[in-house]
Amino acid sequence: MKTKPIILVTNDDGIIAPGIRALIHAMNSLGDVYVVAPNKPQSGIGHAITMDAVLYCDSVKIDNGIQKEWKCSGTPVDCVKLAINQILPKKPDICVSGINHGSNSSINIMYSGTISAVIEAGIEGIPSVGFSLLDFDWNANFEHSKEYVCQIVKKILHNPTPKKIISLNVNIPKLRKEQIKGIKICRQAEAKWKESFDRRYNPKGRSYYWLVGDFVHFDKKLEDTDEWALKNGYISIVPIKFDLTDYTLLNILKSWNFILFYLVLYS
């Protein structure tokens, strides 16, 4: 690129999380960095937006970096919307989200605030990528992740796709650098959480609940999925989009005769 790209950085773990600080440090080497991130953890918030409360967005200085930063009282999607509409001097060349503390592979993408920020940027026509490290520890080591982050972001900035807009979900296994075998382009694994609620009682006898569950993987033997890649020592990259249409079912539904159904039900 002839000029320095404008890079929007956000996350869902909060602006002081070590993961986003590592991501900011990596992006400072690639462009003009603007950070708009939640002022507190927003994990599992998905694509929520704030509609019943005011939003606050305050300029902050977290460390001695060259980036410009704002902490937002809203969700990751709020952060992207505010950044584009109110804060940045123009639309960013790319939006990067993360580095998330923990996995966003497979079905987890549906609940992730990290990836919802990426999808929101895609809706606005901005190339975007979400990064996650499979380590939930607040003090996780993000050092070697920064190398892969820079490599992938450079590819996006310098290799426009035919669609012009690219959105990626990147997960990095919790391994030493020498243990990582490479990068796999994958599809999202078919899986779900088999959930239950642990019911307990407070000292006054009122019941409350803790959500618990087990991860159920339906195609664990198939080598084209993100789950297989991560379990076998690879970084997974899954291209994502915001169109949730089931095109296979769409074609089936087109063959249904809804007028006939109406006549049968109401005649």
Results as ranks from 00 to 15, higher is better:
186 C>I: 12
33 V>A: 03
35 V>P: 03
253 L>C: 14
134 L>P: 07
258 F>K: 04
226 D>P: 03
104 N>P: 02
97 S>Q: 00
22 A>T: 05
18 P>L: 05
102 G>T: 12
47 H>G: 14
260 L>I: 04
61 K>Q: 13
156 I>W: 12
105 S>T: 14
133 L>T: 00
126 I>Q: 00
263 L>T: 14
210 W>R: 06
67 Q>C: 15
192 K>D: 11
101 H>Q: 13
224 D>L: 04
215 F>L: 12
117 A>L: 07
93 D>C: 02
226 D>C: 04
202 N>D: 15
152 I>P: 06
234 Y>H: 11
247 Y>T: 15
94 I>S: 03
118 V>W: 01
160 P>W: 13
7 I>H: 08
4 K>L: 15
130 G>H: 01
226 D>L: 03
202 N>A: 06
211 L>A: 10
259 I>F: 01
70 W>N: 00
263 L>N: 11
174 K>I: 00
75 T>N: 02
187 R>K: 14
264 V>E: 10
207 S>R: 10
12 D>K: 03
190 E>V: 14
146 K>R: 13
216 V>D: 11
66 I>H: 09
89 P>E: 09
224 D>Q: 07
106 S>R: 07
92 P>D: 01
264 V>W: 03
176 R>H: 13
256 W>E: 08
155 K>N: 09
252 I>D: 15
167 S>W: 00
182 G>F: 03
178 E>H: 10
143 E>L: 10
159 N>K: 09
117 A>Y: 01
197 F>Q: 06
90 K>A: 08
21 R>D: 10
203 P>L: 11
42 Q>L: 09
71 K>N: 04
177 K>E: 06
252 I>R: 14
92 P>R: 00
251 N>M: 12
100 N>K: 12
149 V>R: 02
166 I>P: 00
234 Y>N: 06
98 G>T: 12
31 G>V: 07
191 A>P: 02
143 E>N: 15
56 Y>D: 14
120 E>V: 14
48 A>W: 10
30 L>W: 03
52 D>K: 07
40 K>L: 13
193 W>M: 15
87 I>C: 01
93 D>S: 04
265 L>Y: 05
16 I>W: 05
194 K>P: 14
116 S>A: 08
99 I>Q: 01
171 N>I: 04
229 A>S: 10
245 T>Y: 03
85 N>A: 11
240 I>C: 00
215 F>H: 13
215 F>Q: 08
89 P>D: 08
26 A>E: 03
215 F>G: 01
31 G>Y: 04
33 V>M: 06
219 D>H: 11
143 E>C: 13
259 I>N: 12
115 I>M: 13
60 V>K: 02
103 S>T: 03
146 K>M: 14
178 E>P: 07
124 E>A: 12
59 S>M: 05
198 D>A: 07
141 N>S: 11
255 S>H: 07
217 H>Y: 15
172 I>E: 01
69 E>D: 07
15 I>W: 04
69 E>Q: 13
119 I>N: 05
3 T>F: 15
64 N>G: 12
192 K>C: 13
242 F>N: 15
213 G>A: 14
6 I>K: 11
103 S>P: 04
1 M>E: 08
60 V>G: 03
264 V>K: 06
157 L>M: 02
164 K>P: 01
205 G>M: 04
106 S>L: 09
238 V>L: 03
41 P>Y: 09
247 Y>V: 15
8 L>A: 01
100 N>L: 05
7 I>K: 03
31 G>L: 07
